[in-house]
């Protein structure tokens, strides 16, 4: 069974969470569990402090990012997103990706074109995240396949966003 990071922070297992609350709970817990608090402790205590603190830091990282949070929620419901092994994607999505990549290749030297693409991708990400929130927080388990697909697509968009960031940096 996958580690449940929502339990770790005593937060409801939902896609829409309060990030400030998450940060506050992480801090509250790390204050108690950090290895510095156990510098005089037994080796077992120190080992445990390292393990729990690492877990808290890892949990914060997983829950802070919307895509990894959604992936975690799906894993908790027994659905793996298999990004590494399963490369099949919706044909329409792939066509759109291909078109965007072509636009980037052709427009890489023009900042306004890159900016337009960034806006477009951000819009697409927002829409997908809203849809994910609806699917994951509805309390029903009907369309988790769609949620899985959205996570996989968002992963793509994340990578593309990084490439766009690089294009912006290079242009400077």
């Amino acid at each position: 069974m996958a580690r449940n990071y929502f339990e770790l922070f005593e937060l409801p297992a939902r896609f829409n969470i309060d990030l400030k609350e998450l940060a506050a709970r992480h801090r509250e817990r790390i204050r108690v569990w950090h290895p510095d608090r156990y510098a005089q402790g037994s080796s077992e205590e120190r080992r445990r402090a390292v393990a729990v603190s690492a877990d808290l830091n890892d949990g914060l990282k997983v829950l802070r990012d919307p895509v990894s949070r959604a992936r975690h929620l799906l894993a908790l419901r027994g659905i793996s997103t298999d990004e590494d092994t399963d490369t099949s994607m919706d044909a329409g999505f792939l066509m759109e990706q291909m078109a965007w990549r072509e636009r980037l290749e052709e427009g890489v030297a023009r900042p306004e074109e890159v900016a337009a693409l960034i806006a477009l991708v951000a819009q697409s990400r927002d829409a997908k995240e809203s849809e994910l929130a609806r699917l994951l927080d509805s309390g029903q388990t009907t369309d988790l396949d769609r949620a899985r697909e959205l996570v996989r697509e968002l992963q793509f968009l994340e990578r593309f966003t990084r490439e766009l960031d690089c294009a912006v940096t290079e242009a400077l």
Binding site: V50, A51, A54, D55, N57, D58, L60, K61
Partner: peptide, 8 residues
């Protein structure tokens, strides 16, 4: 720049 302790 990952906070430590860290595990993955």
């Amino acid at each position: 720049n990952s906070p430590i302790p860290a595990s993955r």
